[in-house]
Structures are given as C-alpha cells and as structure tokens.
C-alpha cells in the first residue's frame, strides 16, 4: 500500500534529542486523529527505540539516528528507527524481558514495551554495522489523505 504521507528526521544520538524525537512523531501521527491512549503508546515505543540508539548503539560516543515514518490510507503508521552503531550479537536474547547489557539502571524492558504497545515490531541487526527497528500500529480506521 502506498503511503499517504512520509517524514524523515536525522538526529545526533544525544539524550536531549529523545524528547525532541517523541514530539516530532506525535505531531506527525496526530494527522491520523489518534486517541490519547494510542498516541501515548506510539510516543513510548518510539522513545524506547531512540533511547536504545543513544545508550547502546553508540555507547562509546555519538552517531546519527535515522527516523522515518509513514502514514497509510488504512490508518496505520509505520516508524523506522535506524542506527549505524555496534549492532546486536544475539537478537533473541536481547529481546528477552529484563535482559540488558548496560549498567546505570536499565530495566531491560525496552523491547518488551515496544512489543506490548505496538501491533508489530521488527528488529534487524548486524554486529558492527547497526540496527533497524520497525514499529507498526493501526491508529484509526480508514482515512482519506
């Protein structure tokens, strides 16, 4: 299905940009008239994906975080969060609830939160070259662009 609207945002992996990315995604998703609950789910899942780029992907410095989003005429939003960071060695393990490789009080619940709040979560990762997280959710019923 062809997207009715798309956006791209590239940010430096600084923690201050976590809130900025959330604001942008919310403003974009608002075009599909989501309920407050649905908007909150999308905002939270996006925050988890972006935070992972800041905390894990570029843990020894900073790098670019590429966020794209598309709205579809059947009322879905699809968001991609991509980094060119360290990648994930064991994806299955990384996605287990409570699993974390970082200290500093990470809960290890980022992927679990994304999965519970979105309809579909896909993760592709290659050690040494980066990670792409795709988040999908139905926001509303059929909508004309």
């Amino acid at each position: 299905m062809k997207a009715q609207n798309t956006m791209k945002l590239t940010i430096e992996s600084l923690s201050i940009n976590e809130g900025f990315a959330r604001s942008v995604i919310c403003a974009f998703a608002a075009q599909l008239d989501p309920t407050i609950d649905v908007l909150s789910d999308i905002r939270t899942a996006l925050s988890e994906a972006v935070t992972n780029c800041v905390v894990h992907a570029y843990k020894n410095g900073t790098g670019a975080v590429y966020i794209t989003a598309a709205l579809y005429p059947d009322g879905r939003i699809r968001i991609k969060v991509r980094d060119k960071g360290c990648g994930i060695e064991d994806l299955q393990k990384a996605m287990e609830p409570l699993f974390t490789t970082a200290d500093g009080e990470r809960a290890g619940l980022g992927f679990a939160v994304m999965q519970s709040l979105m309809d579909k979560v896909t993760v592709r990762s290659k050690p040494g070259s980066g990670t792409t997280v795709t988040l999908e959710k139905r926001i509303g019923s059929t909508h004309e662009g």
């Binding site: 809130g19 959330r22 905002r43 939270t44 925050s47 988890e48 935070t51 009080e105 990470r106 809960a107 290890g108 619940l109 980022g110 679990a112 939160v113």
Partner: peptide, 9 residues
C-alpha cells in the same frame, strides 16, 4: 511521560 527508564528509576 514515562518509558522503561522510569521503571529503572
């Protein structure tokens, strides 16, 4: 707003 970082806290 709160995400899993808040859970960690």
């Amino acid at each position: 707003f709160m995400d899993s970082s808040g859970i960690g806290l």
